[in-house]
Each structure stands twice: as C-alpha cells, then as structure tokens.
C-alpha cells in the first residue's frame, strides 16, 4: 500500500493550479497510473530477479521522492517553497515520473539497468504515441542517473548538455531534474533498505553483505536551511571483530567520498542544489544490549566536514599540477607550435 509523499501532494496541487483543472487532472492521472502499475507489478518483483540487492522496490522509490522534496524545500516554514517554486508544474511532473522509473531496469538484471527502462515504460504506457516526448525524457533521465556514457565516462549528465527536451511544447529543465534525481537516489540509503533479520541470520549472500551492513548503519539527513547533507553512522560494535569493523569503516569512508562527489557533481549541473555546500559526518559507536533493548553509547567521532571552501594559497597547487591536468598547457609544446626562436 502506497502513502502519498509530500512532493506528490504538491505536484497534484501545482498541476491543477498552473495548467488548469482539466489538463492538470489529466497529467496527474497519468502519473498515478504509472505509479500504480510500477508499485503493483514491477517494483516489488525486482527482488525476484535480484534477491541480494538492497531494496529497490516501492519503499526505495518513496524514499527518493521524499529526498527530492527535502532537497527542494526548507524546514523553515517562512521560506519553505522558495526553491521548488522555480520549477514549472511539468518540470516536477517529469521529476516525479523519473523517480518512479529510474530503477525499474533492475527487473531485467542489475548490469546496465539504467539502460533497460524502455521495456517497462512501454508496458506502462501501452506504447501510445502521445507519450513520445515523455518517453524520451524518462528514458534519458534513467539512463544518465548512474553508470557511464557510451564513451566510458562517468560524466553522464554532460550528455544532456544544452539539448532541448520539450513536453507538450514546454521546455523541461532535464539537466536540473536529473541532478536532483541522482542526488536524491544517492541519499536514499539507510536501514529501510535492508533487513535486520536477514543480516542477523546470515541469509544475505557474502558478496552483498557489506552493502546491506552499510545500509543498516547509515542515517542521512538533508538540511537545505543550513546548506548541508548530514551522514550519521550508528555502529553497534557488540558482535563485530577487528577485521569486520575495519572492513565496514573502510567501505563507509569510500561511500562518504562518493556521496560528497555526488553532491558536488549534482550541484554543478543542477543550480537549485547550489545551497548544499558541505557534507557533515558523525560516527556513533554503540554497544547494543539485545536483552533489554538498550543502547550504550561508547564514543562518537564528529563532526567531520567536507565542504566546497577553497582558501587561496592553501592547497599549494603548482603550475605543474595544472599542466598535468590539461596537457595542452604544456609550455614546450606551446613554444614549438609558435615557432619562436
């Protein structure tokens, strides 16, 4: 059973307000139909095809929708909708729809799932030609939300570039939308994506265990007001060995770096994400007593702050570093091309 997310409630309101009752209702009906088909038929069955993955079903999609809402709104009631108002009703329609579809390719296997959305899309929309614009947008959004370009680069959003993506004659801010989708998806991590029971009873395959464990300790928080993403890790050390603790910590550090990179990457393309200037991290180490369900906090590490601040002169970047990054700046090469004696 689906609980309507805040962004969906806002979508319904804004579609009717800006497009008029008739068109607004039609678009929202299309959205609900797609959601119904995916939530009932497709998303819950990803587990059958890929049983070891962390959750990619309806709960995950709801989580990504929730994250998108928090990325675009403020907690402070006096300016709550300031950022989201800059999107048109159709922008938000495409955003919500992209979120619904972004992971459906997993039903046909995890590998390159971002490029396997078309089948499912056609199933949901019955191949009707009126959805051609929408199909192009949704499949493109799903394609670039992860993975690599055809040329093998990770800069998938570059593919969208300055290309015009219309929907019913109106321009859609696809680049902004996919930036939000990517970041909201990266932030959709946490205990809700895994199962405590399966972890405790060793029913998760060894190769997936680390991902599930990571999900169980991760608690992200989106704070647009303070311009930060907070990652809180609560680690129960009761049954951990030195090796297992080292393993999970190392993996966590990698994921922190990845998330921070996603933050910078997404906001590079999606200007609405500009306020998110830093990633903050805290580790809380607990001893959890299963008999009386109590937690004893052993100690905490925090706040670790990764931010965008660059202090001139601090990084000691030399000219040679610039040249090694951009080979065209090689001085000898320039001089030889200029034929100067």
């Amino acid at each position: 059973m689906w609980n309507d997310q805040e962004i969906e409630k806002y979508l319904e309101k804004i579609l009717k307000k800006r497009l008029g009752q008739y068109d607004g209702n039609n678009y929202f009906a299309d959205y609900i139909k797609a959601r119904h088909d995916l939530v009932e038929d497709v998303l819950p069955n990803i587990k059958i095809t890929e049983p070891s993955l962390t959750d990619h079903g309806p709960f995950h999609v709801a989580n990504v929708l929730k994250n998108a809402w928090y990325l675009l709104t403020y907690h402070d009631a006096s300016k709550k909708l300031e950022a989201i108002k800059k999107f048109t009703a159709l922008d938000l329609y495409v955003l919500c729809l992209s979120i619904l579809f972004h992971d459906v390719g997993n039903i046909n296997g995890r590998a390159n799932h971002n490029r396997k959305v078309l089948d499912v899309y056609n199933y949901v929309r019955n191949n009707k030609s009126k959805y051609l614009d929408e199909k192009r947008l949704i499949t493109k959004a799903a394609e670039v939300h992860c993975g690599k370009t055809n040329a093998g680069s990770s800069d998938t959003l570059l593919d969208i570039g300055n290309e015009l993506y219309p929907l019913s004659g109106d321009p859609i801010k696809l680049l902004e939308i996919v930036g939000i989708l990517r970041f909201a998806d990266e932030l959709a991590e946490g205990p809700q994506r895994t199962s405590d029971y399966l972890l405790k009873t060793d029913k998760i395959t060894p190769e997936s265990e680390l991902y599930h464990k990571y999900a169980s300790i991760t608690h992200p928080f989106i704070d647009r007001d303070a311009g930060r993403i907070v990652l809180r890790y609560d680690i129960n050390v009761k049954n951990e060995t030195i090796d297992s603790l080292k393993e999970i910590l190392l993996y966590t550090y990698k994921r922190i770096i990845k998330l921070d990179e996603e933050r910078k990457y997404s906001k590079f393309y999606s200007k609405c994400l500009a306020p998110f200037m830093q990633t903050e991290v805290t580790f809380n180490f607990y001893n959890y007593n299963e008999e009386n369900l109590s937690e004893e906090l052993l100690f905490s590490i925090g706040r670790i702050i990764l931010d965008d601040k660059c202090i001139p002169g601090d990084k000691q970047t030399e000219a040679v570093d610039l040249i090694s990054k951009f080979s065209a700046l090689d001085i000898d090469s320039i001089i030889s091309q200029l034929n100067i004696n």
Partner: peptide, 13 residues
C-alpha cells in the same frame, strides 16, 4: 535562529 535544525547524534549527543 536562522530556522535550521540541530541534529541529535550529529550536532550533539
């Protein structure tokens, strides 16, 4: 003061 929130387990314990 700016309408933001401090977080339990992160900004404080």
């Amino acid at each position: 003061s700016t309408g933001g929130t401090i977080l339990e387990g992160h900004d404080f314990t």
